[in-house]
């Protein structure tokens, strides 16, 4: 069985023929060449694959491409501005050395952006709790948490950050 799925990915309309079992992450990586979204586990636990579907963070390794039919999807490639200016969350990860090998980073960043959407002024504890579903083998999380807190501050006061 083949299905045609259509969705908006990083602002562009796309349409592809896929098998029902095609996961959203495979559509993104293999059909669309968007390899910024990673796969780090097969148990839906690591969060390397987090993208936004209709504005909410989801694990693209545990969603069928067919379930995202008609949706608007944003991946790490879609976060920076058209002129290449990094999103405040990406900038904060850079400032705070919030990554080492970088494997978990796309998922961390996408998850953290969703946190700030739902909670613009999170406490350190709330950041740590929210990132429950994102596993990092390298950093020990400390600088990731610092980065998210800094980005939340910047995103609350965009003018002050200029």
């Amino acid at each position: 069985m083949t299905l045609t799925v259509s969705m908006t990915v990083n602002g562009k309309a796309v349409s592809r023929d896929v098998e029902p079992r095609t996961l959203l992450v495979h559509l993104l990586r293999e059909h669309l060449g968007l390899t910024g979204t990673h796969v780090g586990c097969d148990t839906s636990q690591c969060g390397a694959c987090v993208v936004h579907v209709d504005g909410r963070s989801v694990k693209s390794c545990t969603m069928l491409a067919a379930q995202a039919d008609g949706a608007s999807v944003t991946t790490i490639e879609g976060l920076a501005a058209a002129d290449g200016t990094l999103h405040p969350m990406q900038e904060a990860f850079r400032n705070n050395h919030g990554l080492q090998c970088g494997f978990c980073t796309p998922g961390m960043v996408m998850s953290a952006v969703d946190l700030v959407r739902t909670n613009p002024d999170p406490s350190e504890h709330e950041v740590r709790t929210w990132l429950e579903g994102n596993i990092c083998r390298c950093t020990g999380y400390h600088n990731i948490v610092k980065a998210v807190l800094e980005a939340a501050r910047t995103m609350r006061q965009p003018a002050a950050a200029e």
Binding site: S44, G47, V50, R56, S57, V58, K59, T62, M63, S111, D114, L115, W130, E132, G133, N134
Partner: peptide
């Protein structure tokens, strides 16, 4: 329940 992404789906 689980984590934020599990709760979103």
């Amino acid at each position: 329940i689980g984590d934020a992404q599990v709760r979103n789906c």
